[in-house]
Design a protein around this nucleic acid. Sequence first.
DNA 1: GTTATTAGCAAACGGTCGTTTGTTTGGCGA
DNA 2: TCGCCAAACAAACGACCGTTTGCTAATAAC
Lengths: 227, 227
Amino acid sequence: MLGDPLHPNVPQPSPGQPSPVRSNPVRSNARQAGPRPANRRQDLLDAAARLFSRQGFHAASMRDIARAVGMLPGSLYYHFASKDALLLAVYAEGVRRIAERVDAAVASAATPWARLEAACVAHGEMLLDGGDYAQVVIRVRPEDCAAMEARLTALRDAHEDRFKALVAALDLPAGADRQALRLMLLGALNWSQTWYRPGGDSPAAIARRFLALLACNPRGPGGEQAP
Amino acid sequence: MLGDPLHPNVPQPSPGQPSPVRSNPVRSNARQAGPRPANRRQDLLDAAARLFSRQGFHAASMRDIARAVGMLPGSLYYHFASKDALLLAVYAEGVRRIAERVDAAVASAATPWARLEAACVAHGEMLLDGGDYAQVVIRVRPEDCAAMEARLTALRDAHEDRFKALVAALDLPAGADRQALRLMLLGALNWSQTWYRPGGDSPAAIARRFLALLACNPRGPGGEQAP
DNA sequence: GTTATTAGCAAACGGTCGTTTGTTTGGCGA
DNA sequence: TCGCCAAACAAACGACCGTTTGCTAATAAC
């Protein structure tokens, strides 16, 4: 009862915060540190993120995840109410991490075009090399988990709205196709997860090469990319 | 024994041919028509394509597929040696259908840019509206089926090589980034499967809008797209 | 010292998975 | 008419699935 059964009755670090090194000065009556609790919940999230990103949602089993952290399968139901809830937690954290980086990159750029480029570079770096959480967001389709589809889609859309704003801020000729511009950029970046292998071009270089191809880029065709 | 167990001992239509309407004048001793055999194998392929494209490889079970054609689960092992083999057959047919359309479109275009545009339009139309077989090729990742990964990847690569040739034929300035051009175009198109919904822009329009955004397009920035 | 809570173990639940095995059916060629 | 064979049925196999239940140490609060 009492709402959806996403969170079992366990003290979660704090929703909306980056789940810090667990050194936050909690109020008195909450369980605080102790040698035991450690960050087993975080370990579980990490393991789930790894397996979901490498094998996909269906192919990664709860037993796999439990084994990865040295638990028995039933034990992780103390921390997460279901496999769906575990995916949602990983997915939300993934979106949060990508958005965090993108926001920071955007904030430190001056012009609209520089902001879009910074966002694409940050987005691409997270997708391709930014850890398992970020990769889950692209690898796992919301419809892979029917029970969570709406929530996962909402999370992904909220992130992509940032790019809507960035493209809207560009100074473009009147009839410019801003929607296609956004969809092409994000699509090409997201799909790059399927062919990217470390060792070749860096994620940042890939993102910049894509952006350099766009006709409306004021640098002009074949423009140089900054290092 | 004798090679990989992909094909049970059942008369397959003919490898490498488009599996015609089964009206080919077979030699004498092969079972030919009869009221029974019909095209149950084809029905099975169709059902598998549908479920694989809608649910993905892991979420679609052999029981689902059997039920879709009114068979018992064990019965489809008469036609396909394993789930993996069934996926390979669907995937190969999907690649064949996409490539067929792309080749036809390319053949009926005159200039290098027109050929690339025709290929993108055909590719996009197949991905988005070209039936279940084509959609499986994009929806199912080769690594979803470890046993077939190499073969699936080879099929997909063979198709994408067409675009390598089309881009190589373009008349571009010296330092043009042809690889990024191809990857961006194909990536944006392939990813569009995740957001496309019938009713809005047609697949052909989407493909043309993407191509129109590219800086190297001789029509110039914001160029018009043909009807 | 008692009590409550945290975190996990141990073992199973019913169900579904891909697959195998043995048997039956119906039409065809001889 | 007989035997053959494609094409399916019927029924299970063992393995694995997500999940539940009951219990038990360890820790913290009183």
